[in-house]
Amino acid sequence: MADKLRAQQQLEQLQTRYVGVGHADTTKHEWVSNVHRDSLASYIGHPAMLEHFAVALNEPRERVRLQFVDKMIQPCGPPKEKEDI
Rank of each mutant, 00 (worst) to 15 (best):
Ser39Asp: 02
His52Tyr: 12
Val19Ala: 14
Glu83Phe: 09
Cys76Thr: 05
Leu50Asp: 03
His36Cys: 08
Gly45Asn: 14
Glu81Lys: 11
Trp31Leu: 15
Leu14Gln: 07
Pro79Ser: 06
Ala48His: 07
Ile85Val: 15
Gly45Ser: 14
Leu14Tyr: 00
Gln9Asp: 13
Asp3Thr: 12
Pro79Lys: 06
Leu57Ala: 11
Gly20Lys: 08
Tyr43Gly: 01
Phe68Gln: 00
Val35Ala: 10
Lys80Tyr: 05
Met72Glu: 03
Asp3Cys: 08
Val19Gln: 13
Glu51Gln: 14
Gly45Phe: 12
Gln10Pro: 02
Met1Ile: 10
Ala56Met: 12
Glu30Arg: 04
Asp70Pro: 00
Lys28Gly: 02
Ala56Ile: 07
Cys76Asp: 04
Asp25Leu: 04
His52Pro: 01
Lys80Val: 05
Pro60Tyr: 01
Asp25Gln: 07
Pro47His: 06
Lys82Ala: 15
Glu12Met: 09
Phe68Met: 12
Lys4Glu: 14
Asn34Gly: 10
Asn58Phe: 04
Gly22Ile: 08
Arg17Tyr: 02
Ile73Thr: 09
Pro60Arg: 10
Val19Glu: 13
His29Ala: 06
Tyr43Val: 15
Arg37Leu: 07
Met49Ile: 15
Cys76Pro: 00
Val35Trp: 06
Ile73Phe: 00
Glu51Trp: 03
Leu50Glu: 02
Lys28Leu: 10
Ala41Leu: 04
Glu30Ser: 07
Gln8Ser: 14
Asp38Gly: 13
Ser42Pro: 00
Ala24Asn: 02
His46Leu: 05
Phe68Ala: 08
Glu51Arg: 15
His46Gly: 01
Val55Thr: 14
Asp3Gln: 09
Ala24Tyr: 04
Ala48Tyr: 05
Val64Glu: 00
Val19Asp: 11
His52Thr: 07
Gln15Ile: 00
Phe68Trp: 04
Arg61Thr: 11
Glu83Gly: 06
Pro79Cys: 06
Arg6Ile: 15
Lys80Thr: 10
Met49Ser: 12
Leu5Gly: 07
Glu81Arg: 09
Asp84Gly: 06
Leu57Pro: 05
Asp84Glu: 14
Ala48Gln: 14
Leu57Glu: 05
Ser42Cys: 07
Cys76Phe: 01
Gly22Leu: 06
Gly22Lys: 09
Ala56Cys: 08
Tyr43Met: 06
Gly20Pro: 13
Gln10Lys: 12
Met1Pro: 08
Val35Asn: 06
Ala41Gln: 11
Arg61His: 05
Trp31Ala: 11
Thr27Ala: 01
His29Met: 05
Leu50Cys: 07
Ile44Leu: 10
Pro47Phe: 00
Met72Asp: 03
Asn34Met: 10
Thr26Ser: 13
Glu12Lys: 12
Lys4Thr: 13
Leu66Tyr: 09
Glu81Tyr: 03
Ser42Glu: 09
Gly22Tyr: 04
Arg6Asp: 13
Leu5Pro: 00
Arg17Leu: 07
Tyr18Met: 08
Asp84Met: 14
Gln15Pro: 02
Val21Ala: 07
Pro47Tyr: 01
Trp31Pro: 00
Arg37Glu: 03
Leu40Trp: 04
Gln13Arg: 10
Gln9Cys: 06
Pro78Asp: 11
Ala41Glu: 12
Phe68Lys: 02
Pro79Phe: 01
Glu62Ile: 04
Lys80Asn: 04
Lys4Trp: 08
Gln10His: 09
Ala41Thr: 08
Asp38His: 08
Pro75Gln: 03
Tyr18Leu: 12
Arg6His: 10
Leu57Thr: 10
Gln15Met: 08
Gln15His: 03
